[in-house]
Design a protein around this nucleic acid. Structure first.
Length: 349
DNA sequence: AATACGGGGCG
DNA sequence: CGCCCAGTATT
């Protein structure tokens, strides 16, 4: 009988796995947690720089819990999925209040924290606490789908359940953390989506997909849909080199991030400025539109620009703030790019 | 059970 | 340019 899947992965990991990722040295529960949240839907190479900066500013749960949310969001700006940062900040405060500042070491308590689902709980338990908990991220799904020749799209509940069953079944009681890291490393370095290096794979002896000579057919891809086009007008009210930003609501696009105010549908720029921002807008004019792609739709943004006239009543204080163009808070990437290309002196021909 | 959430990387 | 990536929360 051949060596089991777990043992082959563990042996391979010892020689060829990644052992020098920042969150592995030292591999504390807090660092594992932060890295896992950052790594949700975000690749390792992108996370590296964010993780180091984040750790320098928020070295432990207490520091994170006490930090103003604007600053947490600022350190997250550019990573996307901003609900992750909002949830993590709220979770840090609950960890301080309810768990004495230490991450809980059981699945139920971890799952109760905002932003921690089944897989992230499993990652924290196995990687940081050495508990035999299963994980199932994109890498694992790909490895299992290929090794077991699992047909179907993993986004389908029925398929996901089968993959979770494989994961639980094969997670070893001994060295579960190494196993979790091993299967993710295999998916990231050999069992890649395109051009997998099956020759070097420790599972190539009995991989179902390889036997079928159809490795790249697994996992079955997401059914493609075409993305609808939405439109938005963003308003840049200038006061010399300062611009008025608005904190967006916690949910929805760019949640909790500072951004240019969005002109309400059916309102002129001037009306919106007067009624929602509490100021007169002068010399308002549209600039060239640009399109930003999201996962589920495309957003055509038409930026409007104008100068601040006199204030016209009480605006929504707290959600509105003036910022120097040279010292912006974390703003969405396309907005940051647009603002960066504005002439510093508000000049019109 | 399906959908929303986002930016970066890559061929 | 299309597709994917260390998933979770919401509906």
């Amino acid at each position: 009988m051949a060596t089991g899947l777990a043992q082959r992965l563990l042996d391979w990991f010892q020689r060829h796995g990644r052992h020098d990722l920042p969150w592995q040295n030292p591999q504390t529960p807090y660092r594992v947690w932060v890295s896992e949240i950052m790594l949700q839907q975000t690749q390792v190479a992108t996370v590296l720089g964010y993780f180091e900066r984040f750790m320098r500013r928020f070295p432990d749960v207490q520091t994170l819990a006490q930090a103003p949310s604007d600053e947490v969001m600022q350190y997250w700006a550019g990573l996307g999925y901003y609900a992750r940062a909002r949830n993590m900040h709220a979770a840090a405060r609950r960890i301080v209040d309810e768990h004495g500042g230490e991450l809980p070491d059981n699945a139920e308590s971890l799952r109760a924290l905002p932003g921690i689902g089944e897989s992230t709980a499993g990652a924290i338990l196995s990687l940081a606490f050495g508990r035999p908990a299963a994980i199932l991220d994109g890498n694992c799904k790909r490895v299992y789908a290929r090794y077991f020749g699992e047909p179907g799209w993993p986004g389908e509940t029925r398929i996901a359940r089968r993959l979770w069953a494989y994961a639980r079944q094969h997670t070893p009681a001994d060295r579960p953390g190494d196993f979790a890291q091993a299967i993710m490393d295999l998916g990231a370095t050999l069992c890649t989506r395109k051009k997998p290096d099956c020759r070097r794979c420790p599972l190539n002896a009995d991989c179902r997909a390889l036997a079928e000579d159809a490795v790249e057919c697994y996992p079955y891809p997401r059914p493609k849909k075409q993305r609808p086009l939405r439109q938005a007008r963003l308003l840049a009210v200038m006061d010399d080199d300062r611009v008025l930003l608005e904190k967006r609501p916690p949910s929805g696009i760019w949640g909790s991030l500072w951004s240019l105010p969005e002109i309400g549908e059916g309102f002129t720029a001037e009306d919106h400025a007067r009624q929602m921002l509490g100021l007169q807008l002068e010399d308002a004019r549209p600039l060239e539109s640009f399109t930003h792609g999201f996962t589920h739709f495309e957003l055509q943004i038409t930026p409007w620009i104008g100068r601040k006239g006199q204030s016209a009543g009480v605006a929504d204080e707290g959600q509105l703030r003036w910022y120097s163009l040279a010292r912006l808070p974390g703003v969405p990437a396309p907005v940051a790019k647009f603002l960066a290309n504005l002439p510093t002196r508000n000049e019109s021909s």
